[in-house]
Amino acid sequence: MPPPHAGLVAAGERRWSASGPCVRPRWSLAHGTARRFGTALPRLAPKPLRPPRPGGFAVACLDYRLSGEAVHPAQRDDVAAALAWLRRRAPEIGLDMGRTVLWGESAGGHLAALTALTQPAGTVLGCVAWYAPSNLTVFAEDVPDSSYSAHDGGTFEALMLGGAPAEAAGAARDASPVAHVTDQAPPFLLLHGTDDSLVPARQSVRLAEALTAAGCHPDLWLVEGGNHLWVGLSDAKVENCFSRTLQFATACVDAGGR
């Protein structure tokens, strides 16, 4: 029987699946779409993640309940439940859950980071978050034109929390990855466009600062000119974001496998 492979885990909505003919390291990928809509459909996987790539990783796209169905902490709990399901099924579907990296973009990056920081140490070997919120308690402060209000109950964050961040302060803090940072945090790769008009790049900086203060060594890469979803970047620069992500994941699972 081939040796187990590591994996990527990405967060999606309600379906859980893993791909790969042998026991592989795992990527877990969490989809974005503001926790309000969307699904982790295989056809949405970016080209660098499609077969035969990404270099020995099995990729699981995780679904979670959207904010119209349930509020925090349901989304985080669904990602944790998906990881537990994969651990139970690992021998059957050929996964090495001891070498798992979480990855998500936007709202999915928020859930990947939140899950990585609230699961027992060692559950995942690394976490990648692309243009993700990290501190919902001060999100409004980071929006440069003051177009976002912490008292607005109709924002995507408020819908996920069950109330405006200013009124649901406890939930906002609990849903913020920065509030759960300790010196036991796994390695983090944070990518964020400097021109992001939906999630300010300052949110990734805040998470990097919190990790650094805890004695961790996050890799923060601010992508010059990048808007949300990498709008405004050339294909080559977007490919570079994927390449950095895969290099980081490979380094995490190689270090964890020794």
Rank of each mutant, 00 (worst) to 15 (best):
G109C: 12
A30F: 11
P177F: 02
Q247F: 11
E157N: 08
A121G: 09
A214M: 06
G163Y: 06
S147L: 10
M160E: 15
R89T: 11
L111T: 02
K237L: 12
S67W: 02
A150Q: 13
A113P: 07
S134Y: 01
G7M: 10
A158V: 08
S147T: 13
G108Y: 06
L220Y: 05
L95G: 07
S17V: 07
G193A: 05
P177S: 03
S134R: 00
G256A: 14
Q75K: 07
L229K: 09
L233F: 09
V23S: 11
D77M: 06
F188A: 03
P165G: 11
Y64W: 03
E157S: 12
A113M: 06
C216W: 04
R15K: 13
L8G: 01
V71N: 15
A40L: 13
L159R: 14
A208V: 09
A251T: 13
A214H: 07
T182L: 13
T155N: 02
A107K: 02
V178H: 01
G153C: 06
A82K: 09
A171W: 07
L220D: 01
A185W: 01
L111G: 09
W103V: 14
P51Q: 08
L125M: 12
L111N: 01
A80M: 04
A82M: 07
L66Y: 10
R87E: 15
L49G: 05
A6P: 15
Y131Q: 11
L8Q: 00
D196F: 03
L49Y: 14
P46I: 02
G225N: 04
A175G: 05
P186C: 13
P218Q: 02
P2H: 09
P51R: 13
R76M: 07
R258I: 12
T212Q: 07
D96S: 13
D219Y: 00
L191E: 09
C216N: 14
E239K: 06
W221C: 15
G7S: 14
L222Q: 13
L117D: 12
L191S: 01
H31E: 02
H31T: 13
G163D: 03
G108A: 10
S197A: 15
C252L: 07
T182G: 11
L66D: 10
G193Q: 01
L62V: 15
A255L: 12
G109A: 10
L49Q: 03
